[in-house]
Design a protein around this nucleic acid. Structure first.
Length: 241
DNA sequence: GCGACAG
DNA sequence: ATCTTGTCGC
């Protein structure tokens, strides 16, 4: 586990939120790197994946993987403390430093304006955007049915994100700035990454590879220890103290 | 006090 | 996050 308490984590978010920068110039990246984590049911093992996609061809140019353990629980609003440490490791394994990170989850559209995408961007110093599958804790009307339609997410008068329809008549995704990029460009890039599917190609590829590896690790593949033997070992399923 | 609550 | 086949609809 971690010695970091929930209260301390919240204080850190409030301290780090001021490090988020939003430039007025465009980034115009050639590639986007998606990061995602897959959790192994029945163990605390997890697999983090980084997948870089060429924005012109939408093909994968590089991937990196890291296996680790979750040392911070899932607490709504504190997702960054659970996932970002592993993201820093996988991103560090990439030969080419990412130009833009695409994170599962929210950026500024977060109760303290410091979602995991901001956390990831500030921690790595790399521009980042957040694309969440579920709405933030702000009320957001649904956009029109057509792909490309969007409605703004507001914190008072501050425009902090968009509910964006990436596929006609399909549930929208929630886009917000993580770090070092403008909201409009973030939306442009998400639309470029979603010509066919609801979720960005970056996270789709990262997620796909993660599941495949998790299946090879604990599934019925020839490389894993037979599950019936593990289950029959006394103490095999109990947590070490 | 009772729910809601990214992944 | 994860457990999971078919099925309703365009």
């Amino acid at each position: 586990m971690t010695d970091l308490s929930v209260d301390d984590a919240i204080r850190l978010q409030e301290a780090w939120r001021d490090r988020v920068r939003i430039p007025t110039e465009r980034l115009d990246p050639d590639t986007a790197t998606g990061v995602d984590i897959g959790y192994d049911s029945a163990s605390d093992r997890l697999v983090a994946v980084a997948a870089t996609i060429d924005l012109a061809t939408l093909t994968v140019t590089e991937v990196a993987v890291a296996v680790g353990t979750a040392d911070f629980p899932y607490v709504p609003g504190l997702l960054g403390f659970r996932e970002v440490p592993m993201f820093e490791i996988v991103v560090g394994k990439l030969r080419d430093r990412p130009q833009l990170l695409v994170c599962d989850g929210h950026g500024l559209a977060h109760p303290r304006r410091f979602g995991s995408a901001c956390h990831l961007g500030v921690a790595t110093g790399i521009p980042a955007i957040g694309v969440a599958k579920n709405p933030p804790q702000y009320s957001v009307p649904d956009p029109a049915d057509q792909r490309g339609s969007r409605t703004g997410v507001y914190d008072g008068t501050d425009h902090i994100g968009y509910s964006l329809r990436t596929r006609t008549s399909v549930k929208p995704v929630y886009v917000s700035v993580g770090h070092d990029i403008g909201l409009d460009e973030a939306v442009d890039i998400v639309l470029r990454l979603t010509p066919e599917y609801r979720l960005p190609e970056t996270t789709r590829q990262a997620d796909r590879l993660g599941r495949r590896l998790l299946a090879e690790m604990s599934g019925d593949s020839a490389l894993s220890v037979p599950s019936e033997r593990l289950a029959s070992q006394p103490g095999a399923i109990s947590e070490p103290t």
